[in-house]
Write a protein that binds this DNA or RNA. Sequence first.
DNA 1: AATTTCTGTTGTTATATTACGACAAACATG
DNA 2: CATGTTTGTCGTAATATAACAACAGAAATT
Lengths: 284, 284
Amino acid sequence: MNTLEKVQKSLTHFSKSERKVAEVILASPQTAIHSSIATLAKMADVSEPTVNRFCRRLDTKGFPDFKLHLAQSLANGTPYVSRHVEEDDSPDSYTTKIFESSMAALDTARQSMDTAAINKAVDILTQAKKISFFGLGASASVAHDAQNKFFRFNVPVICFDDVLMQRMSCINSSEGDVVVLISHTGRTKSLIDIARLARENGAAVIAITSRNSPLSSECTLPVTMEVPEDTDMYLPMASRLAQLVIVDVLATGFTLRRGPRFRESLKRVKEVLKESRIEKDPIL
Amino acid sequence: MNTLEKVQKSLTHFSKSERKVAEVILASPQTAIHSSIATLAKMADVSEPTVNRFCRRLDTKGFPDFKLHLAQSLANGTPYVSRHVEEDDSPDSYTTKIFESSMAALDTARQSMDTAAINKAVDILTQAKKISFFGLGASASVAHDAQNKFFRFNVPVICFDDVLMQRMSCINSSEGDVVVLISHTGRTKSLIDIARLARENGAAVIAITSRNSPLSSECTLPVTMEVPEDTDMYLPMASRLAQLVIVDVLATGFTLRRGPRFRESLKRVKEVLKESRIEKDPIL
DNA sequence: AATTTCTGTTGTTATATTACGACAAACATG
DNA sequence: CATGTTTGTCGTAATATAACAACAGAAATT
């Protein structure tokens, strides 16, 4: 865990003097890491060894080591002790918080990723006759993005954000087809039906969803992740970002598997797109 | 700039002994930050003051200060010196790289954000009679996401990913309407036309795009950002993520501006959505 | 209830470690 | 050979920590 958060969280566990040290550090972590143990002790109005003991209590080797850990946690963001948006946050404040919580969410998602599953998914995708991306509601935009990416690969790819079309498409699917389902909760009934339907028709079903969800047990290959989502108050967002990144990871794996000649043709697609744009001023 | 990268980049600028120090640090930065100046000097087979001079050359106050900077840059990720995906990366490796570069991109985007513009955009959005989100190609999925978010706010909102529909919609727009255009480059000709068209019909035009782009000068309020995008080889991805986060920031600003009673009704929308899901096992 | 004992907290002193400045030797360069 | 740069040696000041002592408050004993 982040050292600064640890200090914050252990506040109650500390003794009187140690709490003084913690408060000084929390008040201005940037000052703390640039101070010597003597100046910090003076700021907190305690003795130097107290500061040292404080450091030890947080599982560090001593004061210098503690400074190192603290420096790292400062670099990692979290200048705000809380990342949750509050009622009376300023635009500057909530902007920062949302960006930071997004980054933190991506980090936890990364740590919970199973790269073996990623690899298998790439396997399946490269061998697909046809790829379909399905998502509902908020996940639909991820499906669209995926379609956009894989379309450039010159692979037969479709995308539906509508239950009926998804069902119809599944009924017509066959061996060699790959269906990618995107759902954060993995509990949307109609998507679970679709997973079953697709499998019954011989298609391989990849699901980008959460671990242990009903959907993950209903598909051929679950690509799962753990994302801290504060859905109580705000809209699901972190999961969307993580899904997008996973789609990008799959797309990247796809291009790597296909080899260099394939990537040449990708560049040509890009060249064509440039024509619809206003050229950048060459002076810039 | 990241300290570790700085060491890497300045390798040629160093003198013989200083380079020895740099190499030892690059070989194992984790060891370096946990060593004293004496042990590091011994490892590099140079004298202690040489190590100190090395630190000074990198604009730090001395060895301890250098360690702090180095620790921060290590915390920021970059265990890989490069975040770019290489030809022969393992799935684990490219997954990590893509996640990390995404996070780094969000960080730079955040730093380049103009929160005053965010605030103005929220102003405009809260007063809108009707909100339209337009994006083309890859940005279309962001527009969809935005529609999804604002739809829950019970605001008249539409979204088109098709040039003709966008034009038609603009022609029918009037005073009080708000058009939000999403384009990373801000150079897509047809979107620039649409910005002009919308303004001619009295609509306010917000553009989520890059600074100094043609689009940003053609709209009422540009919400710009700087995102490092490696479009040469891979697909635009970082910009998409940043756009999504900005949409989320705008949506959050919107709900905050609307006050607590508004958020109550949001919860009701969520309750309704739950009915389409399989309930979570209460034991879990 | 008063005293003792124990446990944990805090400060003082002493020492070892660490980093840095000043100077001098070695080295390269014209 | 002269000049400027690089590098190392030495001494000193700052820094962190170990060991010990004083103290406070709680628990136990009388």
